[in-house]
Design a protein around this nucleic acid. Structure first.
Length: 314
DNA sequence: AATATTGTCAACCGCCTATCT
DNA sequence: TAGATAGGCGGTTGACAATAT
């Protein structure tokens, strides 16, 4: 091997730059159908001319169903400032306290807004440099402080109550909701609005049932995606929920089908993907059709045997 | 109205770490 | 145990939009 690492992919053969709607749809559809066991091989299997890393990034930062969109609330910004004091530029760790927010997004917000907000008379680095654990090689201390932070979050949080709830994860999170029972529990919770408002835009409809018949032109494709083939792909011995084909934020990579990943299973996954019918290609004829389909996909976060039971908005 | 400047954020780069063989 | 590989992370870039001149 030559000096340095081999590139993860041949840069001459992969597309770069902004993702097209068509590519987004292809990626979403593929992951909905097969999950993602191996980012490197995923683009090839999905028929995308993209680097695996690019697919992963696009999925995690933009397409993943539980990504929260929209402006940061004051509570979230305060949280970022607070945790940045403790953790420094550990964006992924800070993101673990803010459900639905990605490290990339938090980093951008810090660099574009918060740094300036704090900087009029004090240098941006001063806040973090004063904390011992910002040293990158001191992760043990950081982890200790992180745990203390989580602990303090339960007792004496500097933030509002609903942020505490997010931090504590005591209530069912939306990305965990795939049972009507859970939804009912959520709806019954007295602070339901507070809880959901941290995940959803205010005007988003929760758990809005959307009949497949509304999209006759895509009925066949949709039906195909959520067909029993999904279950077959995941293996017959496991009780499978479609939720499990998605990333769970800030936890180890989701293992489709809820099984421990082994190489054998990865090989099996690859074989199944290759042997299964190709991921449907979507060719909306116009913007309207595209938007219709894309919105529908947005709403198709969780399925339960062909029945749409929940929505996590983008 | 045209141009320059500034702000925003998605995407890329390259390094580090964990895991596998 | 060492080398290879994939995933993850933080820093940076560049395209585009918004605002100022």
């Amino acid at each position: 091997m030559g000096k340095g690492r081999a590139p993860c992919c041949d840069k001459n053969k992969v597309k770069r730059g902004p993702w097209s709607p068509q590519e987004d749809l292809t990626l979403i559809t593929f992951i909905q159908k097969h999950g993602h066991h191996n980012w490197r091989s995923l683009p090839k299997l999905a028929g995308l001319m993209r680097c695996g890393k690019s697919c992963r990034l696009r999925w995690i930062n933009y397409l993943r169903p539980d990504v929260k969109r929209g402006n940061f609330t004051e509570e979230e910004e305060d949280a970022i400032i607070h945790f940045h004091k403790t953790l420094g530029n550990k964006w992924s760790k800070i993101a673990s306290f803010l459900p639905g927010r990605t490290d990339n997004e938090i980093k951008n917000v810090w660099n574009t807004h918060l740094k300036k907000r704090l900087s009029p008379n004090s240098s941006p680095s001063s806040s973090s440099s004063s904390i011992s654990c910002t040293d990158h090689d001191d992760d043990k201390n950081c982890d200790t402080e992180l745990q203390e932070e989580r602990h303090s979050c339960q007792e004496d949080s500097p933030f509002s109550s609903h942020l505490q709830e997010n931090c504590m994860h005591t209530e069912p999170e939306l990305h965990e909701v795939n049972e009507l029972h859970d939804i009912e529990l959520l709806l019954e919770h007295e602070d339901f609005d507070d809880i959901t408002s941290t995940f959803l835009e205010t005007d988003d409809m929760l758990f809005q049932e959307q009949p497949l018949e509304s999209f006759p032109q895509y009925h066949h494709q949709i039906d195909h995606i959520i067909s029993t083939e999904f279950h077959n792909t995941c293996g017959a011995t496991q009780e499978v929920t479609n939720e499990q084909s998605f990333d769970h934020p800030h936890q180890p990579d989701n293992i489709p089908c809820g099984v421990e990943e082994t190489n054998q299973e990865f090989d099996l996954w690859t074989q199944l993907v290759e042997s299964s019918s190709p991921t449907p290609t979507f060719s909306p004829n116009n913007d309207e059709e595209y938007n219709e389909w894309f919105n529908f996909i947005d709403n198709q976060t969780y399925f339960d045997d062909f029945t749409l039971v929940g929505q996590v908005c983008l």
